[in-house]
Write a protein that binds this DNA or RNA. Sequence first.
DNA 1: CGTTACGTTGAGGTGGGTCAACGGGGGTGG
DNA 2: CCACCCCCGTTGACCCACCTCAACGTAACG
Lengths: 250, 250
Amino acid sequence: MSTESKVTRLGLPGGGPSFTAPDLWSSGSLPGARLTPESRSILAEIATVVRFRKGETIFQEGESAEAAFNIITGMVKAYKLSPDGKPHIIGFRFADDLIGLPENGRYVNSAEAATAVTLYKMSGTAIETRLRQYPSLDFQLIGKLCNVLHDAQDHALLLSERRAATKLGLFLQMLEARQGQEGASSGEVFLPMSRSDIGSYTGISAEAVTRALRELSDRGAIGFRDRRHIQITDRAGLPMSVADTRHFRG
Amino acid sequence: MSTESKVTRLGLPGGGPSFTAPDLWSSGSLPGARLTPESRSILAEIATVVRFRKGETIFQEGESAEAAFNIITGMVKAYKLSPDGKPHIIGFRFADDLIGLPENGRYVNSAEAATAVTLYKMSGTAIETRLRQYPSLDFQLIGKLCNVLHDAQDHALLLSERRAATKLGLFLQMLEARQGQEGASSGEVFLPMSRSDIGSYTGISAEAVTRALRELSDRGAIGFRDRRHIQITDRAGLPMSVADTRHFRG
DNA sequence: CGTTACGTTGAGGTGGGTCAACGGGGGTGG
DNA sequence: CCACCCCCGTTGACCCACCTCAACGTAACG
């Protein structure tokens, strides 16, 4: 299923795990500051590089959690199973993101490779040992967790919107912010995932995704370069889709 | 607005902050294990007790985060503002819960006292100092964060459900699990919050909350003792509200 | 070039939003 | 202690946005 290659401490591509960790109370450094070289070398001792092909399952909800992962390249879909058994996407994870954090020894969600991905794989028990030894390390982990938590809360806020166009507007803003971190904020958003995946994340059907994008396009808020590349032409117009369409009463 | 009382290290009611922290990889102890007496006394040094009356704001999204809070008694509503300015409840917090965790020095959501509440208030910079000194302390904090994150993901899963009755079923299950931790799992759920608050949390209107509860009642899944106390009479029947009502095609 | 999955568009049905009206309970002031 | 009031909860009526299904167009893959 997956290829796994042992690497030496010095041989890790990119110099070892590098998930970003914003500050907590002291807002000194910029959001997105990476692990210190020191921390990275500590984690590099226990990291291996693994690869998954598109569509492969990385881990599943409820499984005994033996390792956490740090994405090097590619995109990962994080999902949970609804009570009726259908999967719902709870997040898209990109380079530098940390996935596979457990609770009580078990994964709390599933993860699937949305594209071909390469990951650092770190044994949980080894991480735990290192955390107890190096205070600065888990301090950065706490910051990362706050970041993931923030994402989850934003997702919930998106899901509580009623109109499909508003959901898509927020979704595009989220993607732009993510992609803008690592390049010029060109105003163009890349959608690597399918309409169906977007629907699963935003809580609407794939058809409604198409129609909502068309609505935003008709409204002049966005433009299409192709089906996977969207230009944001009116950034302020994205979230306002609720207020002005609101049907007033006589 | 709020009463604040300095307390000595030994004088803290209950012996100091006591938020629960489940294990990460090593699933040795039960979920809900509290801080060790050692950790609590460390935090007790920097904790004060504060009180808020029902309806008072504890902190607001975007404010400079000077302190984190640990609930002693009462219930707190955590909410965020939608892009259109309306508040959406993202969680209900109870005794032992930790609130006010910041990102980049600012609160990421607002909190309001839903009942009269008493809290431990801990200065952020003091916590940060302690975390750097005592590795075991922030290790427990990491566990707590995973727990909060899990809650946020469950909330998102609830919001992605379409039928109101299913949302309410999941909501009742969540409340029962929370309340069951600290007492006999009597099958009775207490709803301290208003219908409107439930609607805000589940993403539906207050009227729809009433109708969904009635639907569950008609279905035999729940029974009413009064408007705030619900008996769960068919636990398995709560989540199935989607599948069986599903309109089939000919 | 065939096959398959994805994307789009259209038509019809429905769940829940919205508004309106009423009932009930708790708090306040007389 | 009672009267009043205001807010919460409930119920009904109507309508719209989105789900569902179906059909077709299109890109990706061998």
